[in-house]
Every structure is written in C-alpha cells, then in structure tokens.
Simulated assay, not measured.
Amino acid sequence: MATPRPSPAAVEQPDLPDHVEVVRRFNRSYTQRIGVLEESFLGLGMPLGTARLLYEIGAEAGTTRDLRARLHLDSGYLSRLLRRLEADALVVVGPDPDDRRRRRVELTPAGRRAWAELERRSAERAENLVAPLTGRQRARLAAALAEADLLVRAATVRIEEVDPAGAAALAAVRSYVAELDERFPRGFAVGDLTAGTERLRRPDGAFMVATSDGVPAACGGVQPLGGGVGEIKRMWVHPGWRGAGLGSRLLRHLEGVARDLGHSAVRLDTHGSLTEAVGMYRRAGYREIERYNDNPYAEHFFAKGLH
C-alpha cells in the first residue's frame, strides 16, 4: 500500500529570517505580475528566457562569451536559446571579425522589429502595473526598486583573481586611472598600465576584479613590501556602485588575500581628494602613518594589522 502524502497543512514551513522571507515574497509577487509564469511572455510567442536573450542582444550585440558573462548562462542553455532565435530568423550567429575563434551574435531585420515590439510591450506592462498608484507612490516605488536593484546586484557581484596584465584587469584599471585623472586637481599621468604588474602575481601578490553582468565594478590588488607587510594597490570601485558596500567587501577580501600570502599587516596610500576612500579606510580600522613610499600622488598613508 502506498504511503499517503501529507496534506499541505501538515508540511512544516522553514523558519526563515525576516529579510529572506521578504525577498521570497517579493519574488513570487513580482514574477507573477510581470508575466514570468506565462508560456508566451508579453504575448510574443516565446518564454521569458528567450525574450530576455533577444533583449540583451538588441541592447548590446556581442559574442556568445559576452552573453554568457552578462546573463550568467551556461554554454549549453545559451546554445539552445540561440538555436530557437536562429530558427525564428531573429538572430544570426557567425565568426567574430576581431577573433574568428569566437562567435558573434546580432539581430536580423526581423529580430530588430521583434526587439522593438518587446520594448514597447514591456514598457506598456510596466506602465499598466503602476497606473493605479499616485504620483507620490510611483516616486516611492521607483526609489525603492532602484535601491533594491543596486543591493541585489551588489550581493551577486563576483570577485575573482585575474591576470593583472590581462584584459579584465586592464579594463578595470583604465577606468580607475581615468577617474584619478578627472578628480586629481593636477590630473594623473597615465603610463604603461602593465608596469609593475609582476608584483601583483602569485606567489608574491594577487589582483582581483569584481564584475557584475560581465562589466568591471571594482578592482584591487596586493603586492609585497617585505617584512611580512603587503600593500593594497589599484583599489577602485565604479562610481555607480558606491554606497552599496562593495568597496568594504572588496577591502575585506583583499585583506584575506594578504593573509593567505603570508602577510601580517597591510599598508596603502591614497589622495586627499578621494574622500570616500579615506573615510572607508578609517572605518575599516586603518590608522594613519608616516609616508612610506615616493608616490607623488599620495597624501594619506594607512596601515592595519591582520589578526
């Protein structure tokens, strides 16, 4: 005789923290209301996953590798979605002119029309969703969703060790030095971005890049100073990410890397105009010390013991 299944009322619900339950409840409510559960998303004849990929290709054409990084898709699932879009004559996939080992994905004329219709229906769905709200309520909703979006993306940022002279590191460092040049009163002389990167490689050092949807959000490295002291270098957080706690998270990560490299303390320097960085270092327990290097752009010098 088969064992009877427990009734739904008999199944115990897990005791979850309030913030976890809030996120789960929002996910259930929002996905239902925006049509995620519909077999034909927005009446376009395709499920959400396929429509989302079509949108991403139309927003920024690129290689299959770019798409995997931006959408966090495994190669098999991405290939299946692309085959459906190809079968519907919405995309073309071919060798990338810049690197024929990679495949580039672009919309066909029919794909561009489908993309425009997806944009129109998506905007219409969003407008209808908030239509019953007052202007004040819409402003509150927009502010709350912007904050939620930032924090969710911050929580899912991936910090990975990379080659300090590789493409990912150099993309982040270019943004870093461009900001320094803009913010320093006398500018910042940009030299060879690969100079000195050998000290940011293991076994002596390491370099990290934080990415969100395949785009650099922050970076930083550790290099040896000698005597069990490491130095944090090239630490940068994209302006759009400031206020989300990513800088503090990256700093803690770099301190952990310094410990793994055998350092018992770390030092760093910064310019006085980078007030956000100065404040973050102080809050993280760094103490100001005397100048320890000949960096002409440095005005503040910090140290912290690693316990």
Rank of each mutant, 00 (worst) to 15 (best):
W236T: 00
T211F: 04
V177G: 01
E198L: 13
L246W: 03
G220F: 04
F188G: 03
Y281H: 05
G228L: 12
G256L: 10
F184G: 03
E276A: 15
G272T: 14
Y176S: 02
G214A: 13
L274Y: 09
G221P: 05
V190Y: 05
F184K: 01
V173F: 01
Y286H: 11
P216R: 03
S264P: 06
R259Y: 09
E276Y: 15
E179K: 01
L250A: 02
V177W: 00
D213S: 15
L200H: 02
S248R: 15
V190M: 05
Q223C: 10
L193F: 07
K233W: 04
P239E: 08
M280I: 13
H253P: 05
L225M: 15
G230I: 01
L274R: 07
H238W: 13
H253F: 14
R199A: 15
A277C: 11
V222Y: 00
G279W: 13
D204I: 07
A178M: 08
A189I: 12
A277E: 02
I232E: 04
R282N: 10
A244P: 04
L246R: 01
V278S: 07
G226L: 08
G187Y: 09
Y281M: 06
L250R: 01
R199H: 13
L268P: 01
S264G: 15
L254D: 01
A265F: 08
G205P: 01
P185Y: 12
L261F: 13
S212E: 09
A284F: 12
L274P: 05
R259T: 13
D260W: 11
A172P: 01
L200T: 03
E198Q: 15
V266T: 05
R199P: 02
R249M: 09
L246Y: 08
G243Q: 06
V177L: 05
F184M: 14
L180P: 00
V266G: 02
D181E: 13
